[in-house]
Design a protein around this nucleic acid. Structure first.
Lengths: 326, 326
DNA sequence: GCCGCCGACGCAAGCGCTTGCGCTTCCCGT
DNA sequence: ACGGGAAGCGCAAGCGCTTGCGTCGGCGGC
């Protein structure tokens, strides 16, 4: 590794001066500057972020901790966050939390030991207190539990789900089912709430028999059970993109025609939504906007640890296609 | 931040001892150990990877640099690499290269200034020489150009594409088209080669009119042009998952029945392959295996910079469904 | 002609950690 | 009773950088 010392020697100045010209932290005579810059060029000096961080305290690094495995939505979010972080001049450290409280805590500690400036976290309930304990600036991403006293950014869930259900109701459906991920996840809980709300707005009664929530991988089986009911649903709202896959598979296995035998609407506008038959009605969540907002909030929080926590809800856009039966 | 000094003070020992206890680098009397560990616990000491790295030289950090934007395959790869890196005891720094030579070079320099131990790189041709120039241990991922003298891991493309084409040929198709990403990308080039090879094996002639390669986003238009040909293809092989989407959209716009009017086979077994009509015949690339192999190669290279470069090709599995017309 | 000021730069103290030496004890063999 | 070895620890250097003080000329104002 070529160090500042090498550059300094070559330019015939002190490392102090090299530092100041590289960082532009104090005026340096023009010809000295030139000599230093030339030396930098010649040596291929890149600097050492590690050493720099040790003295400045900051790393210009953000941690992103979320359940990554087998989740296209998380993947999209990751890409969007990377873009936003880079735009804000930060590097991204990626860590999979496996949706597990212990793993989240461990991840957080690891990130903090790497001195990340801040963390974007999609947490289970188990690790919500950890960031404050560790004193790491954190914004909660995607999942937005109540009363955390933290900055958080996520989709608007209640209203949008309610709209989905109401639309189904207006189409004449009386038995509308809902399949979601684990109710312990705030996103699922909120969408479940929106579902009930929508039912009410459509003047329908809540039938617990018609809702299934659990691990996304089990969504297919859950849907199969719903369809096996004596009086099965004629419409279903899928809580998210991965649940949707299960729902669709179950319907297909049962030989149901989507849109005709069974209306399907879903959260998450998957990229293939227009490629299946019929094209899927769903809500499109502006991932880039969510990511950018989260990064902005985090950067603000890092700059001022004492500002009041902000919660931002970003409403999805309804993409109306034909699986709802229209 | 609580430092070793704090722990040492609390435990009534020197920081040397704390260091040795924490790292288990030399024997320490049991009760001293206990006191130190207790102090660690009490203070919540996490260590400082930055300071540690400064003295040891290593960071136990790997960089992953690839074109991330709008590419589900890259996303899947990212998740797989994260898992593999974590399993190998490394942290992952994620960087989007935007498939651009200059950006790649800049990214590589940034990663090196962060002192990553090694880099996994999906590169354009423009930046292939950079890793060696910078002296960063690197393994090329996913795209595997010839003669790079570097470690590299990627899918087997020629044979698998050829098989796809041959299958189509055996089904009686005479005019088989191919749509891929940019020919400058080695993956596309190889698949194009496999396509020609398959054509030969099926005793068909190569008609340049039937192949389109270019930016994935333009795949739809490219496919539309192919379908508008006086004598349009009766079968098409899509170079990858994102091209596939364009192909399918174009076919749909033209009102073609997949599998009947137009046989479609594809690389990349997208998660929704069984949800469209008819289900798609495609090649499933073992992403986890590719990622794990790449990380292994990289770790080996870090351990021994002078070992001979290895190239690993991982063959995909053909998932035979019905879009081929069977 | 002297003082003060300002522009241009260098000194050296750390940041928190690892690690090669070296210093104490303490015990055991003779 | 004494020498020597081993076990248990601590000292301090130094990783590559930033930054608060200083130093050193040179120049203008009086």
């Amino acid at each position: 590794m070529v160090t500042m010392r090498d550059v300094a020697r070559l330019a015939g100045v002190s490392i102090t001066t090299v530092s100041h010209v590289v960082n532009e932290t104090r005026p340096v005579a023009q010809d000295t500057r030139d000599r230093v810059l030339a030396a930098v060029e010649e040596t291929g000096y890149t600097g050492d972020a590690i050493a720099r961080s040790l003295v400045t305290g900051g790393t210009r690094t953000l941690g992103l901790a979320l359940p990554l495995a087998g989740n296209p939505h998380a993947a999209a979010l990751t890409a969007a966050v990377e873009a936003a972080a880079t735009a804000a001049g930060h590097t991204l450290i990626l860590a999979d939390t496996h949706d597990d409280g212990d793993a989240e805590r461990a991840t957080l500690r690891a990130l903090r030991s790497r001195r990340v400036d801040g963390v974007l976290l999609t947490a289970t309930a188990g690790a919500l207190a950890e960031p404050r304990r560790l004193g790491v600036p954190t914004v909660l991403l995607d999942r937005v539990p109540e009363h955390t006293g933290a900055d958080q950014v996520g989709p608007e869930n209640v209203q949008s789900t309610s709209d989905l259900v109401r639309h189904l109701g207006e189409l004449g459906h009386r038995r509308i089912a809902m399949v979601t991920g684990p109710a312990a996840v705030s996103t699922s809980a909120e969408r479940l709430l929106g579902y009930r709300l929508g039912l009410g707005r459509a003047k329908l009664v809540w039938d617990p028999e018609l809702v299934a929530s659990g691990p996304p991988a089990a969504a297919g089986d859950a849907m199969a059970s719903l369809l096996a009911l004596p009086s099965p649903p004629t419409a279903v709202v899928a809580g998210d993109g991965v649940v949707l896959v299960g729902v669709l598979r179950a319907a297909r296995r049962r030989g149901l025609m989507i849109g005709t035998d069974l209306a399907v609407v879903s959260h998450d506008d998957v990229e293939w939504a227009d490629l299946v038959d019929p094209p899927l009605t769903s809500t499109a969540h502006p991932v880039a906007e969510i990511a950018a907002t989260a990064v902005r909030l985090l950067v603000d929080r890092i700059a001022d640890p004492d500002r009041l926590p902000t919660t931002v809800r970003i409403p999805p856009r309804l993409v109306h296609r034909r699986s709802c039966g229209c």
